[in-house]
Design a protein around this nucleic acid. Structure first.
Lengths: 223, 223
DNA sequence: ACCTGAACACCGTTCAAGT
DNA sequence: ACCTGAACACCGTTCAAGT
């Protein structure tokens, strides 16, 4: 016999944390970080702005939940059967690609790194480092180095994307950074001067991968 | 004969970008990131909030200038005559210590990394990597790895400090993070479970230094 | 139990008006 | 040239009142 509707059963149009998260992601993807307000969210969900607080503690809670959602999904695609070194690269690149697709994830994960999204990344990388044979005493620091690097790049990428949005193109943004970094006091910044062309033309994903390889080589060397 | 007062000469109580930056740093150090508003700044400078805009483009500009000021000062102490490897550690630790003393610098540098503060760090580390003998084709990626790691740790440290402020102690904050990271679904996070004690008791500065050593070892190995 | 929406206590930024 | 401070257009969050 069919179960009686439980108390927790809801009309399909009832509010829920899941629906709020989905709407928030939608706004962030479509209109950017500045467009996510409780008023905009309420309008999109055709409800009152106060209603959202019944399901979500505050804006930080909402952003943590949306970020965790995206990171969890990104890590789902990462392989389990690959060699540890390849698995580490795959996990790191999966996170990188998720942030590339949604720069607001980078903003959030670097603004509030002590959240569940980081826990997932930490766990995924740590397990593979173990499988790689890194001795136990070096596992915590090695994983932290990898996670720290990843967070740093996330911050750079997210900030870059915000500036690209203003300058309309990635080339324009980098040309602008290089111009600002080389115009005043060029004598004080010979190294920046020297790598200016590379900075202007580099591929973010390739550079990210190169950094991961450096850290993996360092972990192997230190062990 | 004494020079005539030039047009640019000012009464000592006149506003200037320098005075605004000093007041902003004062507020940030004393009352935290949330306390820096144009109204608070105007009160401390006994002026109108609109007056600040004559010297500073907007809040982002102000924060970039304060951060650059702190980073510049931090790098002043870094040695020039040390061996390249030691100089790199010294530069990195100087930035780390500056962020330790002023977590708001970490927030700002990870939120807006494409600013002058990062340029100084990039230049300092790049020069030493050159002196270390890293081949030219590897210099850009190597420096970026180091800078990326440093920004990531800056973000972690700043976020940690914000949470410490809420929890009143660093031990309390880390205990809280560990509790949140291990309580639900412990089976899905065996690695986090395993390093929980280390996470709770680790020394940030030592871990940061360990990460720098890993990256330096990696740079040496890859070359 | 859950939702409404006005109200509160803020923000950054602008700008006419002053000196 | 530089400063004043009210005004504008927002925010996140709260909460009495509804269903």
């Amino acid at each position: 016999m069919p179960a009686k509707p439980r108390r927790t059963e809801r009309r399909s149009d009832a509010l829920s944390k899941e629906r709020i998260i989905a709407a928030a992601i939608n706004i962030l993807d479509t209109d950017g970080e500045g467009a996510l307000t409780f008023r905009a969210l309420a309008t999109r969900l055709t409800t009152g702005s106060g209603a959202i607080y019944w399901h979500v503690a505050n804006k930080d809670d909402l952003l943590a939940a949306t970020t965790d959602h995206v990171i969890a999904k990104a890590l789902t695609g990462a392989p389990v059967d690959a060699a540890p070194g390849d698995a580490i690269r795959a996990i790191a690149l999966a996170v990188f690609d998720a942030i590339h697709a949604r720069p607001w994830v980078g903003t959030q994960i670097s603004r509030e790194p002590w959240q569940s999204g980081t826990r997932r990344i930490f766990e995924g990388l740590g397990q593979q480092l173990q499988a790689l044979g890194v001795p136990e005493r070096a596992q915590f620091n090695s994983t932290s180095a990898l996670v720290g690097y990843l967070l740093g790049l996330a911050a750079q990428y997210a900030a870059g994307a915000r500036l690209v949005a203003q300058k309309t193109s990635r080339a324009g943004f980098l040309t602008d950074v290089v111009a600002r970094w080389t115009q005043d006091e060029p004598d004080r910044y010979p190294f920046v001067q020297q790598i200016a062309d590379e900075l202007r033309e580099h591929d973010d994903r390739e550079q990210f991968r190169a950094g991961i390889d450096i850290i993996l080589a360092g972990i192997a060397a230190i062990r």
